[in-house]
């Protein structure tokens, strides 16, 4: 009998040293029954891609508070694509101006969550992504 658990990588790219938000999300997703791989602060795009690959995660969640999302996200997407992880979706949490959201979505970010987002919303969003993925298999 198959047992399936959602596996999510929560990563903190860039140089800012605040991981409170990332930790809150990690705990909320754990409490929602997911397996959360948490890799700590200051992750390079290569480190994120490598962890996503080895851990075979369903989703990569990036917490970016530094404002550097427009430079970080494309590099991470590229590193993941190079690792043949084109099919692994990225979601972003942090302070993202509305103007940037469209650009991020063009880079292949499937969900952007601002500071006001409830953890339930993020959980439901991830569950829907995974249901879609399992439907495709």
């Amino acid at each position: 009998m198959a047992i399936r658990a959602a596996r999510v990588l929560i990563a903190k790219p860039g140089l800012d040293g605040h991981d409170r938000g990332a930790k809150i999300i990690a705990r909320a997703l754990r409490d929602a029954g997911m397996e959360v791989i948490y890799t700590g602060l200051r992750q390079t795009p290569q480190m994120i891609a490598e962890a996503a690959l080895q851990e075979d995660v369903d989703v990569v969640g990036l917490s970016i508070l530094s404002g550097a999302h427009m430079t970080l996200v494309p590099r991470i997407r590229e590193a993941m694509n190079e690792a043949e992880l084109d099919d692994v979706p990225i979601i972003v949490g942090g302070i993202i101006p509305d103007d940037d959201k469209a650009a991020l979505s063009e880079m292949g970010v499937v969900g952007v969550f601002g500071p006001g987002t409830s953890t339930e919303m993020i959980r439901d969003f991830i569950n829907k992504l995974i249901a879609q993925k399992d439907g495709d298999d």
Binding site: A5, A26, R27, L29, R30, D31, A32, G33, M34, E35, V36, I37, Y38, T39, G40, A51, E55
Partner: peptide
Amino acid sequence: SPFSGGAILGDRI
């Protein structure tokens, strides 16, 4: 976690 069935896996840190 016996309560939720989820886990935080942090050894990679």
